[in-house]
Simulated assay, not measured.
Amino acid sequence: MDSQRLETALKSEFGGTEPERRAVARAARDLADSGRPSRDRGHGLTVPGVIKHLGDAPDDSSLVDRWNWWLGALDVAYGGYDEFTVRFVEGDEQPGLRR
C-alpha cells in the first residue's frame, strides 16, 4: 500500500484535513501489512479499491467516518477489523472515539 499515493487520492476524492488523510493512510497501510484483506477477501488492498469502498459510505460522511464505516462492514463480515479503525486524529480539538 503506497501511503503517499493514497493520501493524494483521498484528498482528491474526499477532502478532509491533512491529519485525517494521514491517519486513514496509516491505518490502510497497517491493514495491508497485516495480510488480513488478502486472507479474507482473496486480494490485497489497492489505492483504487480503498477509494471505491470509501465512496460507498453515506454521502455526508467525513473521511474518517468513511474509513470507519467500511472497516465496520469488514468487521461484521469477517471479524477482526476493529483494530484498524481510526480513533484519534492528531490535531483534533476533541480527541476520542471516531465514528
Rank of each mutant, 00 (worst) to 15 (best):
M1N: 04
D2N: 13
D2K: 07
Q4S: 15
Q4M: 13
R5G: 11
T8D: 12
A9S: 15
A9Q: 06
L10E: 01
L10M: 02
K11Q: 15
G15W: 08
G15Q: 08
G16R: 02
T17D: 09
T17K: 07
T17P: 02
E18W: 07
P19N: 04
P19Y: 01
E20Y: 00
E20F: 05
R21Q: 08
R22Y: 06
V24P: 02
V24W: 00
V24D: 02
A25F: 01
R26I: 12
A27E: 01
A28K: 00
A28M: 03
A28P: 00
R29A: 10
R29T: 07
R29P: 00
R29I: 03
D30H: 06
D30F: 11
L31N: 04
L31H: 02
L31T: 04
G35K: 12
P37T: 05
S38D: 15
S38N: 15
R39S: 06
R39I: 03
R39K: 05
R41V: 12
R41W: 12
H43V: 08
H43F: 11
L45F: 04
L45S: 01
L45C: 09
L45P: 00
T46K: 08
T46G: 04
V47A: 03
P48A: 07
P48M: 02
P48F: 03
G49I: 02
G49K: 06
V50G: 00
I51S: 03
L54W: 02
A57F: 12
P58E: 07
P58Y: 11
P58N: 06
P58V: 03
D59W: 15
D60Q: 13
D60V: 09
S61E: 09
S62E: 03
S62K: 07
D65L: 12
W67M: 00
W67Y: 10
W67N: 01
N68I: 04
W69S: 00
W69I: 02
W70Q: 00
W70V: 02
L71P: 00
L71K: 01
G72N: 10
D75S: 10
V76D: 13
A77D: 15
A77N: 15
A77F: 07
A77Y: 07
A77M: 15
Y78E: 14
G79M: 08
G80Y: 05
Y81W: 08
Y81M: 06
Y81C: 01
Y81R: 02
D82M: 13
D82S: 14
D82A: 14
D82L: 10
E83C: 09
R87D: 13
F88V: 11
F88M: 14
E90K: 12
E90T: 09
G91T: 04
G91P: 04
G91L: 06
D92Q: 12
E93Y: 12
Q94P: 05
Q94D: 15
Q94K: 07
P95V: 10
L97F: 10
R98W: 03
R98F: 11
R98V: 10
R99Q: 14
